[in-house]
Computed example of a mutant assay.
Amino acid sequence: MNTIAEPSTRRFPAERLFAALISGAALAALATEIAVGQGSAAANAGGLLRFFTIWGNVGAFAVMGWAASGRPVAPKVMAALATMLTVIGSVYWALLAADHQPEGWQLVTNQVFHTLVPIAVVAWWLRFTPPTADVSALIPAIMTPPLAYGAFAVVLGELTGFYAYFFLDLTRLGAFQYAISNVVLAAFFAMVGAGLATIKNALNARF
């Protein structure tokens, strides 16, 4: 007897669709910021990359786009990205938002960068990736983004005099305190990342 096969509901699984939406949202916000800036597209893009927030959202665009294509993302990469965006959102709203008054389209992109993308990426990580048996193995990758940005920030500051964040301002802090700030920031990332990974493992075990 001939039967008609049911269309596959897994043709584009929920995790890939969600990842695609996150990647698209990050890309749309980045493209909008570049388009509405006062300089050329290249100048606007370069200006954006001075900020750690943009590093995190570029990472979200790339990694979530990779996941949306159906290719696996290494656990250490996802843990590092989730930690990065958790810190970006938390630090912005706790320490920086009061002194930042976006206008126009930036009212929208600011919410995407600091709220929508961080929450969505962490939710995707918690829901769609397996637990990690050895949380400590994730720590080096989790600490890499803040250390890389710290090195970038000091070079950028020396070349241009611009420091995006007061806690990484070499001219205010001096070399010794700047080094301490980077160590403390990396340790903070490690603590946050280990906590997130532990929570994730507990949730995976429960559900």
Rank of each mutant, 00 (worst) to 15 (best):
L85C: 04
P72V: 11
A67S: 14
V63F: 06
E103W: 08
L107A: 08
T171R: 15
T86L: 10
V91S: 05
E15A: 15
A94I: 14
R172D: 03
A14Q: 08
R71K: 11
A82Q: 03
S69R: 14
Y165M: 11
T171V: 10
E33A: 04
I34E: 01
V77Q: 00
A25K: 03
Y163H: 14
E158F: 09
A187F: 03
L116Y: 11
I119P: 01
G193W: 03
V58K: 05
G39N: 13
A79Y: 03
A60N: 10
F176C: 02
F51T: 05
N110W: 00
D169G: 07
R50P: 00
R50I: 00
A148H: 00
E158D: 13
V108S: 04
G59T: 04
A19H: 09
G104S: 07
V122M: 05
I4W: 11
A205F: 00
G157M: 05
A80E: 03
A20W: 05
P118R: 03
F188V: 14
G37M: 02
R127A: 13
G157S: 06
L48V: 03
A60S: 15
A31I: 03
A62V: 15
L168G: 01
R206T: 11
Q111D: 05
L196D: 04
V121T: 07
L168R: 04
Q111M: 09
L48Y: 02
A179L: 12
L196Y: 04
V154N: 07
A123G: 08
G59S: 09
M64A: 12
W93S: 12
I54L: 03
D134K: 12
T160E: 10
F166M: 13
T32S: 02
L17R: 14
F52A: 13
L159G: 07
T171Y: 14
V63E: 05
N204H: 12
A187D: 08
V121F: 01
V58F: 05
K76M: 00
L116S: 07
F51I: 07
Y92T: 13
E158W: 07
G65L: 03
I180A: 14
A74C: 04
T171L: 04
L30C: 12
A82N: 06
L138H: 11
F152S: 11
V155S: 09
A82D: 06
A186T: 07
T132Q: 14
A60Y: 03
Q101D: 12
A190V: 11
T3M: 11
L17P: 04
L156P: 02
A123R: 04
G104V: 05
V154F: 13
T144M: 15
V108W: 06
T53M: 10
P131D: 06
F113P: 00
L196H: 06
G47W: 09
Q177Y: 09
N201Y: 01
V36R: 04
W93C: 10
Q38D: 15
T160P: 10
A120T: 12
Q177H: 13
T86W: 05
A67E: 04
F162I: 15
V154Q: 13
L107W: 02
T144I: 14
N44R: 08
T3E: 05
L85Q: 02
A137P: 03
L203I: 14
L27N: 05
A62T: 15
T160K: 13
A123N: 08
G193T: 08
A62F: 09
M1V: 15
T115G: 10
I22M: 00
